[in-house]
Amino acid sequence: MVRVLFLGGLGRSGTTLLERLLGELPGVCPLGEVVHLWERDIAGDERCACGDHFSECGFWQAVGEKAFGGWQHVDVWRVLALRHTVERTRHIPRLASLRMSPAHRLLVEEYADWYARLYEAAAIVSGADVLVDSSKHAALAYCLRFAPSIDLRVVHMVRDSRGVAYSWTKKVSRPETDNAEEMTRYSPGRSALLWNAHNMAFSALHRCGVPVQRVRYEELLDQPETTLRELSKFIDIKPGGLSFINDGVAELGACHSAAGNPMRFTVGPVPLRRDDAWRTALPHSQRRVVSALTAPLLGAYGYRGVR
């Protein structure tokens, strides 16, 4: 079986940073947001985190050859059609149910098998013991448990909803494209509703027998070494000496993260400090709206309410 550590939660919660830190541990290979690889990379030929276009990246070309005999043999549109049919947040109750119809289960298993074949090839090419998929989508995590060859473990990444809401209002360029595109933006109210939906879904995943460990963004930045040691135990690896972290700065090497936040392109020293700009930059009225909409889960995750 191939061990996969799936990073879940709503975007802008620190999953890319966590993936990069995990990628510095011995025996761990970060793959990025594999959920987007089919359309953005195989079909769109966007840039890998190494800087090369997907079609020119030696790592991903070796993975494609090992998994499918070459990416040209992947029916991208079939994968995307399956995703549209089975991997949607609104389908999670069905994915978690024991009463799924045989026909629908076959579709879920077919969809999960595409990922399983890719993971197995990536493990062979990289020589890694653990692969990190930072796709974040809760519905995908529910689907992956239907692949018998995947040893799935999930990190549920949580960040204060006000910080997430503020981050979604920022303009962020996508350097992986050649068209000066920007990442999606959401209003604070919209991001608050998404924050609820994604986090509730991951909070319930353990009921389906999937090992889940919650990590708070704020704790990761305050105590990175402690967090990484705990996660190393969760995925059954030895963390080593964590020598790449010194005085609150992580030294990051290059990786082959296929899709995700632009931070995946960063190489070199990265200060490990919280981004708490929302405390002054998010207007008070918007902060109150987000706090009110997310209050129950904020309390459950140990955050204070409206302020």
Rank of each mutant, 00 (worst) to 15 (best):
L5E: 11
L10N: 11
G14D: 06
L18C: 10
E19R: 01
E19V: 08
L21N: 11
L25W: 15
G27Y: 14
V35K: 13
E39D: 10
G44P: 12
G51E: 04
H53F: 04
F59E: 01
W60Y: 12
A67I: 07
A67F: 14
G69Q: 09
G70L: 01
W71H: 07
W77F: 15
W77V: 00
R78V: 09
R83W: 12
H84C: 02
R88E: 14
R90N: 06
H91K: 14
P93E: 14
L95Q: 07
R99S: 11
S101V: 07
H104E: 12
R105F: 12
Y115P: 02
R117N: 01
V125P: 08
A128H: 08
D129Y: 14
V132C: 02
S134D: 05
S135N: 02
A138M: 11
A139E: 13
A141M: 02
Y142T: 00
C143E: 07
F146Y: 15
F146T: 04
I150N: 12
D151A: 13
L152P: 06
R162S: 10
G163W: 15
G163T: 05
Y166R: 00
S167H: 06
K171V: 12
V172G: 01
E176D: 12
T177N: 07
D178N: 14
D178H: 13
P188I: 13
G189V: 03
L194D: 10
H198Q: 10
N199V: 07
L205E: 04
H206P: 00
H206K: 05
G209H: 13
V210L: 05
E218M: 00
E218F: 10
E218G: 00
Q223M: 02
P224G: 13
T226W: 07
T227V: 10
L228S: 04
L228W: 06
S232G: 09
D236W: 12
I237D: 07
G240N: 10
L242V: 07
S243Q: 13
F244Y: 03
F244E: 01
I245P: 01
A254R: 11
H256Q: 02
A258M: 10
A259N: 05
F265N: 01
V270I: 09
D276V: 05
D276T: 06
T280W: 12
L282E: 06
P283W: 10
S285M: 04
Q286G: 01
Q286R: 02
V290I: 08
S291I: 04
A292W: 15
L293G: 12
T294C: 02
T294Q: 09
A295G: 09
L297F: 09
A300I: 11
G305V: 07
G305Y: 05
